[in-house]
Design a protein around this nucleic acid. Structure first.
Lengths: 218, 218
DNA sequence: ATAAAATATGAGTTATAGCTCACATTTTAC
DNA sequence: GTAAAATGTGAGCTATAACTCATATTTTAT
């Protein structure tokens, strides 16, 4: 079951004008309203993945959720707020998977950490590939989540701890490359070449890529 | 000056229904109409980059192009066709840069090819980073261009020729990883961390990443 | 029991963007 | 010169999707 997640005011990257509020009009208090909010988010995800972004009108979403359009706007001040809320929930779900898989590996050797990182990233992308695809294609990039920034910091700390065992010394660049490469390759595979993920081949290959870059080979 | 580029009928990935035609209503024949078409495409790019996707209405585009809305629809059957045309032109421009930089390196050593590949990719992304960003965020992924498929084949042929000098043996996977990694890292840098590209550091680092993966180190 | 608060409803308002079309102007062909 | 073809025009049509609001129902608190 989805859990609601509300976020803060943001600024449009082009106009620098504040976006219209994405905070909810009303916080659901009783159980029935929580069910309503959940039904709306679930319906949104379902329509996005099965009918496409163009069909995801607020009226259609309310219809599939089995609630009135008025109810939708009681909890989401705008369509953008609704989509953003769903997107954040999805990102948080993915990040939770990754963090739970890596949280106890701070003292593990590099080979293990990279192996787990790649595995975790692939697992995270398997949560709802179609939703992931649609959100990535249609939703203006979400400001780096807290969870993501936290993870970046954690990875950096790990690299600092193992600095003497890794080849590249500009950790800023290294973190950038590791994170982006594993994300992009996993993402591309999930979207365009899912067959590459069925056996473990691509996973192994991505791991090799990162490992050979990171560790010094005599 | 932009050069018009028309493309074929495609199918929507979700609904499997044929998309509305994206071929032009009329092919421009006289010089003045070619100027019109060019003005429309230029205005589109300008509005997308400077005012944002939401402001890129067909009426606004026609206004900035200095032509009537009727003229716009004389050459582009739909807004989608216009945007797609612009996107294709942009992709082709980028691919042309990459191909021209790599075309004579078929017999060059791997280190050189990778170095040039990364350099070319960064150069291609420098053509119009803001347009590139907007198109990537807002335009449903364009079907792999001919140019892109051709390039993939070329890269694969090169790897086959140098098979004995590279570590990974599944060339299908290797091509996938090389192409996607260099594209994704360059793209991410251009969009989110342009400062990383000012000196050659990131370029060198990406090259190292690919090189250490590809070539066997004693 | 009942008042107040929370939640639900959906017909209707509003805005706007894509697009048409009847007509005007310019160019080309002969 | 003139007919036909190419090109240009822009007021306005149409569709639709986001969102409102007056009203109804349900739940909670006392």
């Amino acid at each position: 079951m989805l859990v609601v997640h509300f976020h803060q005011l943001a600024f449009d990257s082009l106009t620098q004008m504040p976006r219209k509020s994405t905070t909810p009009r009303k916080l659901p208090q009783q159980d029935r309203s929580k069910i309503t909010v959940d039904a709306i988010l679930t319906a949104t995800a379902r329509i996005l993945t099965q009918e496409g972004y163009d069909r995801a009108t607020t009226n259609r979403i309310a219809e599939l959720a089995g609630v009135s359009i008025g109810s939708l706007y009681q909890y989401f001040p705008s369509k953008e707020a609704l989509i953003t809320s769903l997107a954040e929930h999805h990102v948080n779900t993915m990040m939770a998977i990754i963090e739970s898989k890596l949280k106890d590996l701070f003292n593990a050797p590099i080979e293990v950490v990279l192996h787990e990182l790649v595995e975790a990233c692939i697992a995270a992308h398997a949560v709802d590939p179609m939703l992931h695809k649609v959100l990535n294609e249609q939703v203006p990039r979400i400001n780096n989540t807290n969870a993501e920034a936290q993870f970046t910091a954690l990875l950096r700390a790990y690299l600092e701890l193992h600095r003497d065992q890794i080849q590249p010394q500009n950790l800023d660049l290294t973190v950038f490359i590791l994170e982006r490469a594993v994300e992009a390759l996993t993402h591309a595979a999930v979207i365009d070449r899912p067959e590459l993920l069925s056996d473990g081949q691509l996973q192994q290959e991505i791991t090799n890529l990162l490992l050979s870059y990171l560790v010094e080979k005599t």
